[in-house]
Design a protein around this nucleic acid. Structure first.
Lengths: 173, 173
DNA sequence: ATGAATGCAAAGGTTTTGCACCCCC
DNA sequence: GGGGGTGCAAAACCTTTGCATTCAT
């Protein structure tokens, strides 16, 4: 045993994830920590234990969480931290660019994700809820043209593709 | 005066809408009315004054409303109709295909719109909130390819472009 | 007359706010 | 020591649900 441990996590639907994105390492955490401290200093806000605890718990997960996921996660590990504090800090972390309002789940909840150097959109499995990221330059270009055709100055977009990731499995099953 | 009345509505941001989609005419209303009655009969549900009042108020607007917009509109004209009745009927109207869960506003609310024969996505002005519809076959095709690349069976998508419709006006002003 | 629909109010669930106390700078 | 931060509870908000009554068929 032990020779195939690099295969990545198996989803509820049976699909095996490629081992693409390892959890953030210690160095990355340090960088985020400094980044947060800098932001707080710059804005005249204060560093608190709770603030970093909340940030860390979110950053460790890799993102794609909604507010309630975050509250639950914090409560589980630190029952002493109140929900109001979590909500207040989600806002601060977004302002600090350590977190961003990413997209909506199909049922309308706001999902947060970690800041990323490249823009991407999302494809979500309606079976297992797993979210993957995609990027397509052609679509990006087409969006610019569409905005131009409407006389709009493009400011952003939200693009979510929905489908089922276990299609192949079901076909053969 | 009177020679230019076909120019369409002027938005809060100054943009003049092309007179593309006139409000539904009496004939269209009649068709929807029959369609609703048929649906209700088919499902063993009942036709009520309130039911049609709510439907009519929504259908008259052309859509792109959220639940609260609808409640407000109904309350304004018919204070006797309770909010619960409105919510219950939004569901019925969706089931009857006279209304559909269209997309999310940038802040996450569910927007409803009238059923349309062609699929389309939306482009929204962050200044005035006006929503236009667009369709792009190339983007549609690219989405299929993306889903395939992920091993997904495509089920749907939500695509919202955000921008400012008064860009041209601001540039010259 | 029978069961669905309504209106009201109460309950549910999530997020925000008020306030006394605490603690970082 | 002062102003932001926290925790708790209450409030605010939107939507759903329970129930007695009304109404369509």
């Amino acid at each position: 045993m032990g020779s195939k441990e690099k295969k990545g996590r198996v989803l509820p639907c049976g699909r095996t994830l490629p081992p693409e994105a390892p959890p953030p390492n210690e160095e990355q955490m340090q960088a985020w920590h400094s980044s947060l401290r800098d932001y707080l200093t710059r804005e005249g806000l204060k560093y608190t234990e709770q603030r970093w605890t909340i940030a860390r718990l979110i950053l460790e997960t890799g993102g794609h969480l909604d507010a309630q996921d975050i509250v639950a996660r914090v409560k589980a590990e630190h029952p002493g931290i109140g929900a109001a504090t979590v909500y207040r800090n989600i806002k601060v972390l977004c302002d600090a660019k350590l977190l961003e309002d990413s997209h909506r789940s199909p049922d309308g909840r706001v999902l947060y994700e970690l800041p990323d150097e490249h823009h991407h959109d999302h494809i979500v499995c309606t079976d297992c809820g797993e979210i993957f990221e995609f990027h397509d330059d052609e679509i990006e270009d087409l969006q610019v043209k569409i905005a131009q055709n409407f006389g709009f100055k493009l400011e952003g977009h939200r693009h979510l593709i929905q489908g089922r990731c276990n299609y192949l499995k079901k076909k053969s099953g």
